[in-house]
Design a protein around this nucleic acid. Structure first.
Lengths: 344, 344
DNA sequence: CTGAAAGCGCTAACAC
DNA sequence: GTGTTAGCGCTTTCAG
């Protein structure tokens, strides 16, 4: 490097600096900066001017310690890269923006040990609440959540026992619903294509609900295929090819997410396969991203931003009133028939 | 609600609780918990046992205040929903995972006033460093960054004046490179399709570099079209249709991102347009997500995870050594020819 | 190896 | 309206 661009490591400014610069007591400066209590317009202006001139940024660490209040909400999700969690985040932000609360996200990559670590780190900042994806956590994680003494909302899933509050859909039911729609459309040779992620409990529950509803009508999954890693679109193609080759009489493919479903759809169209005449297709999630494909993939909406909003609302209300607990909101996923599932 | 699931609002545990439970002084408990200094194995075990039994989670707020050290790195990005920033985040995490530092993300939605607010909030937690997308910031934001007295790395762009360090690619150069490749392939009637986002400076710079390189060869953009909102894939389709209808002699379409490019590609294939014989296509970003399309879209890699890694490395090294400043790393984007741009 | 004392920068609570 | 006094829960520093 040629020259030191960094400013000389000035001591960060404190309230005291503003107090001295404005000739007002620290306490009053603090009041002005937080809009608390009555302060005369004159002093208020003096303080604001001094703070601005110095470029003072309050130290929340000290503030939080003194006030025993940290307006942070820990949001713990498995991944940022599949479009579903960013949408949940949007819902959360929408609600929290109206409050003094701020979301802080942690990502677990679907690993329980990461979740445990991320949770520990976040709790050590003493947040006002936790929003965490899923109902399955390690014993240690559960213990931490219980012991934290703050609102905990488990999101995205309602099939199981919540620690405190829960907001989401029943993935088992979602799987059943899709199975019923597929059976109703007259399909019997049904293949399933999903991710090789034993720890994606929601995908697992959808699969269970799906096979269960099929079984009720005496139908068994004709074939199944799982993938991991790589581009979902490409994997969807590959898996579809593999399955249609291996089990040529398949007449429906149910994908555990829209992205691989889209890959499958593109493959079928490439091959001149009549969709849904010859083979019907359905995914899961309602990824708006995919509008614009040659055909609209049948799918099911997981109400992601709605889930985010509801979860944030629970935290916000409970933080404000100190009352509540154990809320349970089960949203109803809707099937979107699209163009790849026969109507009725 | 039926019953109070919430645990009685216990006072959170403190060091003192662990100290009393283990019969060891607070100070020694603190040492054990931080692995600092020599502590006899005997006391160490007593303390660990007590901490675990009680479920003690240290209070970082207090720790940070006392030690004047906050191992947080503020990461400020415009959006989570376009696949590019999650990849940057991955690069950042990869590097920071090896250090005591932790990333905390803030999202600005491409709005300078949001950026200002997010930045202020983050700085008020006194992070060890800031990684922020872009070189364009409001005066107030710049002032805050300069005054913070911590390492600041501006990422994704190197066309302009950095506050401190910068890591990224030159988007102007990226635009120029693509223009040259397109001209070399023999195209002259070139259309541009982009986002209606005056505040996406990187897209703007690519466009400027692009038109500039065309101009050098006496070529002018034949037509252009901008969109906002909605599904990028669908918009890519619509815009492509509109442009090819309006300006039928177009022989190349340059898209400001891969997602709309993919939409355009699907439209062209639908219409039986020969790609790249009749119309060539190129996007920007190298979104792996799209592998699996019928043709591979020509694009240019923005080195996202590499950018994240390099930025994190700068912060980590500077935090450790206290030395450095003004680093500048310009990465070289590579054209991926794919199947939609003629070779040579 | 262990402990006691003195804050970190701010705010709650109370005086004036 | 404004100022004063105590901490918040931890770590630094220094003494044993």
């Amino acid at each position: 490097m040629t020259d030191q661009k960094i400013a000389p490591t000035r001591r960060p400014l404190t309230l005291r600096d503003v107090s001295e610069a404005s000739g007002v007591s620290e306490m009053t400066v603090s009041r002005v900066l937080r809009n608390r209590g009555d302060v005369s317009e004159a002093t208020r202006e003096k303080v604001l001017e001094a703070a601005k001139r110095l470029g003072y940024v309050p130290n929340k660490i000290a503030g939080a310690l003194a006030s025993q209040r940290v307006n942070l909400v820990a949001v713990i999700i498995p991944s940022l890269s599949n479009m579903v969690f960013p949408e949940v985040m949007t819902g959360i932000s929408e609600v929290l923006d109206e409050t003094p609360l701020q979301p802080v996200v942690g990502v677990t990559n679907y690993k329980p040990e990461r979740e445990e670590k991320v949770l520990y780190e976040m709790l050590s900042w003493r947040p006002s609440g936790v929003i965490i994806a899923g109902l399955e956590h390690s014993d240690a994680s559960k213990a931490m959540l219980k012991a934290a003494g703050i609102p905990v909302v488990e999101i995205m899933d309602t099939d199981g026992q919540a620690i405190d509050a829960a907001v989401g859909i029943s993935h088992r039911r979602a799987g059943r619903m899709m199975a019923q729609a597929i059976l109703k459309a007259g399909h019997r040779r049904i293949g399933f294509l999903g991710t090789k992620m034993p720890l994606d409990h929601r995908a697992r529950k959808r699969f269970e609900g799906f096979t269960e509803a099929l079984a009720k009508e005496g139908v068994e999954i004709a074939d199944q295929e799982f993938y991991e890693g790589g581009s979902a679109l490409a994997k969807g193609r590959e898996m579809t090819e593999a399955m249609l080759t291996r089990t040529p009489d398949i007449d429906f493919l149910y994908y555990s997410n829209d992205m691989i479903g889209a890959g499958g759809l593109l493959y079928c169209l490439d091959q001149g396969i009549d969709v849904p005449g010859q083979v019907g297709l359905a995914g899961f999630n309602g990824v708006e991203l995919l509008d614009g494909l040659p055909r609209k993939l049948a799918t099911m909406d997981a109400c992601r931003s709605e889930v985010g909003r509801a979860a944030a609302k629970i935290i916000a209300e409970r933080t404000e009133s100190g009352e509540g607990g154990g809320e349970r909101i089960e949203l109803s996923p809707k099937i979107e028939i699209g163009d790849t599932l026969k109507r009725r």
